[in-house]
Simulated assay, not measured.
Amino acid sequence: MSDRIDHAKRALRADLRERRQMQSESARAQAAHGLRRQLDELLEQLDAHSISCFLSTPSEPGTREFIDAAVGRGIRVLLPITRADGLLDWAVAVAGGDVTAGLTGSPEPVGEVLGPIAVNDVDLLLVPAAAVDRTGMRLGWGRGYFDKTLGSMEKCPPVYAVVFDSEFVDEVPRDVHDQPVTGIVTPTRTVTFSTSAPR
């Protein structure tokens, strides 16, 4: 990665992180309710019965309400567990399941650990992001876990990044290893990018 691209990514991530931390509790709760509605509609639209998602941190778009409801409806939800080698293991979400801090400090499930290939069986991947641009290019938080996962999948299902509305931007800095997404889900809308975009 060039120094110019790396600097641009760091600057944008710092700005986005600060904006997230300035949100009020009521704004976060409202966003979580809206996000659940959008994600429920996406599941129905794609007829997804097995998905991957992530346990949100307090500053991220809230996924926990959606995950609990999906598990309650019989959807199989895989949650990521970080590994020291940069790959992701997975665990099946359970209602009221225990949570611990992962290698990056983010919440992760406690339970039977499935290997990295477990995610190959899902109908839909919901991934975190710092921002996504209008071409579907995703800017992650710099650790590369999801870029590696997406780049290694033989037959990738639809991938939607979960972001706040303000994080759908005109352009993000990109490098060769960065992976585009199929669409985004925000608290107010779902956007699917052109099928001609690279996946």
Rank of each mutant, 00 (worst) to 15 (best):
A69I: 14
G62R: 07
T149L: 10
R37V: 14
K155H: 10
V77L: 06
D68V: 05
H33G: 14
A70H: 09
H177R: 10
A131N: 08
L35R: 07
V181T: 03
V176D: 14
D165G: 12
A11F: 12
D123A: 05
R83G: 02
T186L: 06
L43G: 08
L103P: 10
I81A: 00
P128W: 00
A32G: 08
D170L: 13
S24G: 09
H7F: 15
L78D: 00
R10A: 15
Q45A: 14
F193W: 14
L114T: 01
A197D: 13
L114M: 06
G142A: 05
R189Y: 11
A84W: 09
R174Y: 07
G140R: 00
T195Y: 08
P109D: 03
A130T: 15
V132C: 03
T82A: 01
C156W: 03
G140H: 02
M137D: 12
D165L: 12
T100M: 11
R64I: 02
Q38S: 06
P128F: 00
R76F: 02
S56Y: 01
A84H: 07
F164D: 00
R13I: 05
M153D: 07
A70T: 05
E25C: 12
G144F: 01
V113C: 11
V132T: 06
I75P: 09
L139E: 09
I5Y: 12
